[in-house]
Design a protein around this nucleic acid. Structure first.
Lengths: 191, 191
DNA sequence: GATTATATCGAACACGGTGTTCAGAAACAG
DNA sequence: CTGTTTCTGAACACCGTGTTCGATATAATC
């Protein structure tokens, strides 16, 4: 039984492929980028690509794994639960060319689904302990969590599509202002 | 100059193609349905298909033109602005197999984009006259309209994904309850 | 340095779906 | 019947996907 020391090359190849895709997205958009484009830019063989990723979509998603993990570790903690939104608005701002190239396209839908799943569980876990005190909430907790995440993504989309006319802080306030009243009323407690 | 009497066959072919697609979506999903499948079921030649529609996507969208037109004529009128939601929840309910087969997939994203554009202008026009009284609203009107439509679509999606655990009326109430407080506060007037 | 395990390379291939073309058939109107 | 419009469907060029496999390269271990 040999030791399974992870080869440094593995992580390197994945990183190079991801970087190649990101730059290509900015240049020509995700949908028009072919696997051939990616491996040419990354100087990687075709079979190597498929050894690391199931397909182009998997590679795209992997590019957001870092963000997800960072957010996951940071969590919500003692912060205002709504503060996570600010982190994400700021992340989008600092990677604007990439986001802008995807928003409204099929690739954006993929990212939204990916983000939806992750943020939903994050928000739900944040809401749950508070809700357990009262037995019944007028609005089911799951719906509220789904509503919060969707609202955030909707505002993020609007913001990017309109070339970020407000600051990340302002958008966070607007998001909170539009969403919190209904959620508080629907759940019966302050979030 | 010949008279351009619309051939009955034209409308008929488009309708048959649309019906073929809808039934195929229910059976095997939109993404797995090929143009060949559609024209086989519709008993229509390949070139005829492309004479009527640019591609598969255009055919799918055309299937929702009737709904859009009906809703457009009905408008909001003197009704409670939030009542449009009920119409749509009910429409989804009466076409559940079709919606269910699309929700969460790429095809659903397309429909959402299509609906978003249409509903946005509908809602915006409904909000505008009321908002003109006060000069500045804390939250821009466009954002509020975008927020309302996205929230509705999010709840519709949730509802379909979870096999419609509530009635259309209940969902309308939940939608109104979650959305209206924030919008009223954000715009500074009752919607 | 020799050995062994693991990654990578890249050309070749099979596959499947797309959208176009065009000559002939069919449907329809007057 | 005549002329016009639409439909037919086989054939085709095109493009991207994902797989295969023997050769090659790199790194770790002894």
């Amino acid at each position: 039984m040999k030791k399974m020391k992870p080869d440094r090359r593995v992580g390197r190849t994945r990183r190079i492929l991801s970087e190649a895709l990101m730059s290509l997205i900015i240049e020509k958009g995700y949908e028009k980028t072919t696997v051939q484009d990616i491996i040419d830019r990354a100087n990687v063989g075709r079979s190597t690509f498929y050894a690391h990723f199931l397909d182009k979509d998997a590679l795209l998603r992997s590019g957001f794994d870092n963000l997800r993990d960072a957010l996951s570790k940071k969590g919500i903690g003692n912060r205002d639960g709504w503060a996570v939104a600010l982190d994400l608005f700021q992340h989008a701002q600092s990677h604007y060319p990439l986001y802008k190239a995807m928003v409204g396209k099929h690739s954006w839908d993929m990212i939204q689904q990916y983000a939806q799943k992750f943020l939903f569980s994050l928000i739900r876990d944040h809401l749950k302990p508070k809700g357990s005190a009262r037995k019944k909430t007028p609005v089911p907790l799951d719906i509220a969590a789904h509503f919060i995440v969707s609202s955030f993504l909707a505002l993020l989309t609007w913001w990017l599509e309109h070339k970020m006319p407000h600051t990340a802080e302002q958008m966070t306030e607007i998001f909170k202002g539009l969403t919190k009243p209904g959620v508080d009323a629907g759940l019966g407690f302050e979030t």
